[in-house]
């Protein structure tokens, strides 16, 4: 599978420009879409899943133009929107059955097996007869992913899937996606939680104010941050000054004061040691330093 996005722009009727000239190539595997709230992730997702038209630009899925071949593209889509909480009065299995039916699983027996498998996979088998509305938040997300994955979709788009999940569920969820991504399938994962991407995605894009500011493997972002992430042991007085000067990523109180992690080119006047960055550090470093640089370059 291959998705190629070219010159994609979306300007809403109120003049709000959600996407600016997006160009992306997405191939099999997990693709992470990272960005702050309002960066345009959901708009891009909604265009990808045919819920919305772009203003200009094109998306081709396996060389099929998305606008012209909605029927075909919808045939291999699975989608989990950001908000997925309100259901009509259907039972868990019924909702899945509805989705499976529309996803093309026409034969009853086939569908039954697929649904039961899926319910097992997402751990909802026990609650299959419960009304979908009565499920807990985590269960609803799992039902959401289940309906997105049922019927063997070739492209799965999941928007902020782990919001509100407890750590256990989040891990389970990531694993499920990873397992799926082994097949000939594209999973697009949009999130503002960096951890979701670092553990699963082979490729990612960083979106900021409607623009792709980074496209590539997550490792590259981490690499860029190397030498720019520091751990400082600070007193209370120093801590106040650090907060003003640097981008603080984490703070842990210790016996004498605080153990603070910051992103900075250098930490003049404070004693600290550089640490090995992770994706989160990379993301912050990129957003704080690189984006500004990029912007000043384009200006």
């Amino acid at each position: 599978m291959k998705i190629s996005i070219q010159g994609l722009n979306k300007i809403y009727k109120n003049g709000n420009r959600a996407l600016r000239d997006i160009n992306l190539e997405i191939e099999n595997g997990m693709f992470g879409l990272l960005g702050p709230n309002g960066a345009g992730k959901s708009s891009l997702m909604r265009i990808l899943v045919t819920l919305m038209k772009p203003t200009t630009g094109s998306i081709r899925v396996n060389d099929l133009d998305l606008q012209k071949h909605r029927k075909d593209v919808r045939g291999f889509l699975g989608y989990l929107p950001q908000d997925f909480a309100f259901f009509s009065k259907l039972k868990t299995w019924e909702f899945l059955d509805y989705a499976a039916n529309l996803a093309g699983l026409r034969r009853r027996v086939e569908r039954k097996v697929a649904i039961e498998d899926m319910l097992e996979n997402v751990g909802l088998y026990e609650v299959r007869d419960r009304m979908a509305n009565k499920l807990s938040g985590g269960m609803k997300r799992r039902l959401g992913i289940a309906q997105a994955l049922i019927g063997d979709p070739k492209i799965v788009v999941v928007d902020e899937p782990t919001t509100g999940l407890d750590p256990d569920e989040r891990i389970r969820f990531r694993n499920l996606l990873s397992k799926m991504s082994q097949r000939d399938i594209i999973i697009i994962l949009s999130t503002h939680i960096v951890g979701d991407i670092s553990s699963t995605c082979s490729s990612m894009a960083l979106l900021n104010q409607g623009e792709v500011v980074y496209h590539g493997p997550p490792d590259q972002i981490i690499k860029e941050a190397e030498g720019n992430v520091w751990q400082i042991n600070a007193t209370n007085a120093e801590f106040e000054s650090i907060k003003e000067k640097f981008h603080v990523i984490s703070t842990i109180p210790d016996n004498d004061g605080w153990e603070v992690q910051v992103v900075a080119d250098k930490i003049d006047g404070f004693s600290g040691k550089p640490i090995t960055p992770n994706l989160e550090h990379g993301y912050v470093y990129f957003m704080e330093y690189k984006v500004d640089q990029l912007k000043s370059l384009t200006l």
Binding site: L51, R74, L80, P81, Q82, F84, F86, F87, A99
Partner: peptide, 18 residues
């Protein structure tokens, strides 16, 4: 109205049907 309010409608709308 339900379709508008229910976010779950989107997952039905993206299915391949006219």
């Amino acid at each position: 109205k339900r379709d508008k309010k229910l976010d779950t409608t989107d997952v039905i709308y993206i299915r391949s049907m006219s």
